[in-house]
């Protein structure tokens, strides 16, 4: 386990996207992704255009490619699935170069790749321009139930702590000559995972104690409410609006 993923997603900057209030971005992102998903799978050109829009949004963050590319890797499993799809799907077939593939599988695979990539690039654009703290505030502002906001907030806060603990346990095991080479190592790894789980649980209890000691009664205080101008809302929702128009347009034309 290297450095904890997620903890360093945000990259400082001063672009339109960086300046937009987090809750407008979050709503814009959700609406955009839902609209893109609603575009019929056969409309590859329209989906390609929306992907281009997503990429443009990502590029507008002016975050260096070396930061962006590793974060885009999250799509890999979906891409692999999309590549396999034409070969395993059933129905009418078509020739693709030297091989014969399923027609519906191919259409679905291209649509999956286009929609998936669009979702990932816009989500990364959101992640690199939004501080974890602002994400939590945005969720709170959007009236997401407190327990969910708390879980998200604790995850942001404690991912590093738990990853660190895991790293220390690994070093401690290795220092006593342990190496996970065969199935016989599994009980040791399982015991380690169990120990980590219990430690995290105990930490949870201590954190709760610290919260109660500072007057927590079950509701998170909303300390710094977010606000947004109509202009900011318009900017944040613009890509979603385009996607909705495209989606409706394709359906009307089809």
């Amino acid at each position: 386990m290297g450095s904890a993923p997620g903890a360093h997603l945000h990259v400082e900057g001063d672009t339109v996207l960086h300046r937009l209030p987090a809750h407008t971005k979050l709503v814009g992102l959700m609406a955009f992704v839902l609209a893109v998903v609603s575009v019929p799978s056969e409309a590859h050109v329209a989906l390609g255009a929306l992907l281009a829009l997503g990429v443009a949004v990502l590029l507008s963050t002016r975050v260096a490619a070396r930061h962006l590319l590793p974060r885009l890797a999250v799509e890999t499993p979906f891409a692999v699935f999309a590549l396999v799809l034409p070969f395993v799907a059933v129905g009418p077939t078509t020739a693709l170069g030297p091989v014969t593939v399923s027609q519906t599988g191919l259409t679905a695979a291209v649509a999956l790749l286009l929609k998936g990539t669009t979702g990932v690039v816009t989500a990364v654009a959101f992640a690199v321009t939004t501080r974890p703290r602002d994400l939590v505030r945005a969720l709170q502002h959007l009236r997401v139930p407190d327990p969910l906001v708390l879980i998200a907030s604790f995850m942001v806060r404690y991912l590093d702590v738990v990853a660190d603990q895991l790293r220390r346990m690994k070093v401690a095991r290795a220092s006593r000559g342990f190496s996970a080479r065969s199935v016989r190592a599994w009980p040791v790894l399982a015991a380690g995972t169990g120990a980590l789980f219990i430690r995290s649980y105990e930490r949870g209890e201590r954190v709760h104690l610290a919260m109660v000691s500072r007057g927590w009664t079950g509701a998170m205080p909303m300390t710094s409410p977010l606000s947004a101008t109509p202009g900011q809302w318009a900017t944040a929702l613009a890509p979603a609006l385009v996607a909705v128009v495209v989606s409706v347009g394709v359906r009307m034309a089809g």
Partner: peptide, 26 residues
Amino acid sequence: GIVFQDPDDQLFMPSVRDDVAFGPAN
């Protein structure tokens, strides 16, 4: 005001400002 031994238990909010504000906000 109790300050617990492990600051990682005491500091649970995403930023220092939010964490210090937690008590007075309550």
